[in-house]
């Protein structure tokens, strides 16, 4: 009894104590923090912030990107051009949106199902988890090459499955050559790449589900679905937020897989914003357009990410 009553007041005083102490030792303030911060801040400003701002600036200029070539201020012309005269931009934008939405459904759902299935003691569990997870550590460019070979129209998976199951139409599918199909063929490789990563994140989250609560719910007569819905899902919420945010970030910047499998083709049907911006700047020497597209990408990202960060900051303050 007495112990509980003494700890309560001491806890309140503890929160205010460090501040005073630290001040007395003269180790607070921005000057004291600077030596620790400086290398990170310099690197971040020079190689991340400055280039990002520079790409916003360059989006108002026309420039070939060659050293010494003139940069001509053209105002909003680059934006007018990409919005009204560049059909590839719209393809790239809609593909990026499709990619993000599909990513939030398929690999996230699969990862959750894998995690739920493998969160119990089951024969071969670690091997199963490994096979699902390994694609996540491979270089996306290596995955692109593997899948490109799988999609080979003459010797690839389609031809082999066609023989195996006697489905001749399967042999004729142009996985990466059909302009309506190619994006989804690449997306399949993306699912293969990241579902296992989501699985591991969900597995980590499932460790936070209290077995006592599950047991109690079962004793109260809850069936599997009710246990999942009312006990497991609420405690997975923080993990789900992390998975959703990581998925959005990763799918907005998808680049390597597309370069490695189609390069944006056929007929630019698999373009995404990240790749089209890169190609406009580096391959077509349209730095203005390229950076205008990059700026659009930046704005889209900020629209998604800033509310999330404000929200987490508030949550953190409340807790």
């Amino acid at each position: 009894m007495s112990t509980t009553s003494t700890t309560a007041p001491s806890r309140t005083s503890r929160t205010s104590r460090p501040r005073r102490r630290l001040a007395r030792f003269g180790s607070t303030g921005f000057i004291a923090a600077l030596p620790f911060l400086a290398p990170a801040l310099v690197a971040y400003l020079v190689f991340v912030v400055a280039p990002a701002l520079e790409s916003v600036r360059l989006s108002f200029f026309e420039w070939s990107g060659f050293q010494g070539a003139p940069q001509v201020f053209v105002g909003l012309q680059n934006y007018v051009r990409i919005f009204t005269h560049d059909p590839v931009f719209w393809t790239a934008l809609s593909n990026t949106v499709i990619w993000v939405i599909l990513s939030l459904v398929i690999p996230v759902g699969l990862g959750l199902v894998m995690a739920l299935a493998l969160n119990r003691k089951i024969f071969g569990r670690n091997l199963f988890r490994s096979v699902f997870y390994i694609p996540g550590v491979l270089a996306p460019i290596a995955i692109a090459n593997m899948w490109r070979w799988m999609y080979n129209p003459n010797y690839g998976i389609g031809v082999n499955l066609a023989q195996l199951f006697n489905l001749p139409w399967l042999a004729d599918v142009q996985w990466l050559g059909d302009k309506n199909l190619a994006l989804y063929s690449i997306f399949a490789a993306f699912v293969w790449q990241i579902a296992g990563t989501n699985m591991v994140l969900f597995l980590a989250g499932l460790q936070g589900v209290s077995p006592d609560h599950v047991e109690a719910a079962k004793l109260d007569g809850a069936n599997r679905w009710q246990v999942f819905r009312n006990v497991v899902m609420p405690s997975l919420r923080p993990t789900t937020v992390v998975v959703v945010v990581l998925t959005i970030i990763n799918s907005i910047k998808v680049f390597d897989l597309i370069v490695g499998m189609t390069g944006g083709g056929p007929a630019q049907q698999t373009q995404v914003l990240a790749l089209w911006s890169f190609q406009q700047s580096f391959n077509n020497h349209e730095y203005g357009s390229g950076n205008a597209i990059a700026t659009v990408l930046l704005v889209i990202t900020l629209i998604i990410v800033v509310p999330y960060m404000v929200w987490t900051a508030k949550q953190e303050k409340n807790s």
Binding site: A52, S277, A294
Partner: peptide, 25 residues
């Protein structure tokens, strides 16, 4: 906290938005 937020923001922005100017740097 604001500084931490500004730094964390960099983790979420796709590399490609800065890549052409980075080449120049």
């Amino acid at each position: 906290r604001l500084l931490m937020g500004v730094i964390a923001l960099g983790a979420m922005v796709p590399i490609q938005v800065a890549i052409a100017p980075l080449f120049q740097v």
